[in-house]
Design a protein around this nucleic acid. Sequence first.
DNA 1: TTGTATGCGTTATCAT
DNA 2: ATGATAACGCATACAA
Lengths: 334, 334
Amino acid sequence: MKNVTINDVAHEANVSKSTVSHYLNGHFTKMGPETRDRIARAVSKLDYSPNHIAKSLKNKRTMTIGVIVANILHNFSTRVIRSIEDFAHGHGYHVIVCNTDNSSDKEADYIRMLMAKQVDGLVVIPTAKNEALFTELAEKDYPVVFIDRYIEGVPIQSHMLDNRMSVKMAFNHLYEKGHREIGFLTEPVEAIVARQERYDAYLEFCGSYGTHPIPIQVEKEEMVPELEQSAAQGSLPACLIVANDLALFELLKVAKQRDVRIPGELSIISIDDIEFADFFNPGITVIAQPAVEIGTAAVSALFEMMNGRKNATGIERFQPYLIERESVKQYEGQ
Amino acid sequence: MKNVTINDVAHEANVSKSTVSHYLNGHFTKMGPETRDRIARAVSKLDYSPNHIAKSLKNKRTMTIGVIVANILHNFSTRVIRSIEDFAHGHGYHVIVCNTDNSSDKEADYIRMLMAKQVDGLVVIPTAKNEALFTELAEKDYPVVFIDRYIEGVPIQSHMLDNRMSVKMAFNHLYEKGHREIGFLTEPVEAIVARQERYDAYLEFCGSYGTHPIPIQVEKEEMVPELEQSAAQGSLPACLIVANDLALFELLKVAKQRDVRIPGELSIISIDDIEFADFFNPGITVIAQPAVEIGTAAVSALFEMMNGRKNATGIERFQPYLIERESVKQYEGQ
DNA sequence: TTGTATGCGTTATCAT
DNA sequence: ATGATAACGCATACAA
């Protein structure tokens, strides 16, 4: 099944392909009305549709961007991707989605492949270890923006939650409810900035509020056994700030298994809203982050760069907001 | 910043570009070892990387496939996309993700654009209204597979859940627990085959088990008010088969608001597993579907087609499985 | 073993 | 108003 090309159309309409090209690009002033008609007929007769690859080769624009995330299964990533795809589609662009699983090798691989494919820009939730590669991109003025994380020393703009503020709001909410025994549950902080920032903020506020820090930092897989044990020995703090939705899942599993009452025995406030938090029993009080706004702002900035505005390099912070539900106990006597 | 091309490399290495091309494609037998070295040095010195677009134009393969779903935010779609991306990545392919929001216009748009971009294949969860377009694709032997739905009369292979079986399992489970008042909650069936199949199966089993059908078919947005009202007048059935996770969300919201006890007053079994079902209170009994398997089988079939095997056209069914938790009440006296 | 020439399907420059 | 021709960056058939 041979594909019909601009040549076929030209032949069918008895004109040169340059004229057809003009027609296709809307330069109607450059041809007589009857040739225009003839071309129109030829196009629809042959059911011609331009080869975008050839176009891209010539124009050096593929109308495609790449989105690289750790894992599309994460709630935050899904929402971000959706908002990016919406924006891109609104501008005639397509989106290639990639999962790194937090492997920087896979990340580097994807980046190189996407560049080879000449995508017009990249939005990425970066792993921590490709500073050199990213710096190189930035120096080449290749359009890239970060989301959710940034890399120290790499001049690429990032759009992320005000993590410190999110912890501050959580902490403050708990404190106002009379809590003084405030723990913090997180996956290992490692080199993931978002986690680091939240953890640091927690420590900071323990200091400024004068409470004793009770950090629980444990691998996701070991979270359930670890928490089980604490629950069994009754050493769980009276209340917990949970660093993200994945940690929340694990905590809730344990709470159910060990039958710890929320908020009776354990108060919970979690960072990042999750759909079921609303109708869970009890409803989970949450510090939500505006994923759609973040995603949209990021692509939006990317498109500015792709259209030649100079690369911004700062960090754009987005404000979290408290959604109060029922998972935090109010101390009456306080 | 001019991009370095195969010509630059050829020049740098003092060979012709054909030799470089051979080198790049691993045809090392076709050159002397020292020219090979020279080219290697030139490549790394210039930091050359082949332009994939030019390659695609020549080879007529973009190493890219398109995935079209209704909404990436749906749990099922997310999991399917993840499995597809994994498979594709394993074969050196990239994935363009598109959301139709169930609009067939948007769908047609995406399909045309993706074909213009010469993607090598398409996996789609089709809306109901583009029979003509899809039929055309099939006739052109363009590699396409469906997931989750199919279109009557369109010769494109689909990979989907055995919907009838899923309802049968749900119905049977309920019946065995002693239930005789079994309702069915669904979004409007309309032209969505998956919904239709589940609904039809429900009716069928009402017949064969001899129970009175209590279908509740209502738009997602109106589900809450509708259910609220039923709850208020106490006209909710004793037990409900819920057609999918979205409907389950709405139901759970109402249950919480009106304080209807599950499974005390209302037993629930839902089709399609969802993460929180496990640690929800009570745990939601569920008929799960193997999203990853379905996605993987679909891409796998797609790749067969892309590699020239003839288009299969049947419907591939996948078996659901019961995950029993606590949302179904056991009638003792039965 | 290496090079020349041509084509992939466009756009764009420059004639006519 | 229309057409011939040269790129774009690569692969390949054919020569040398």
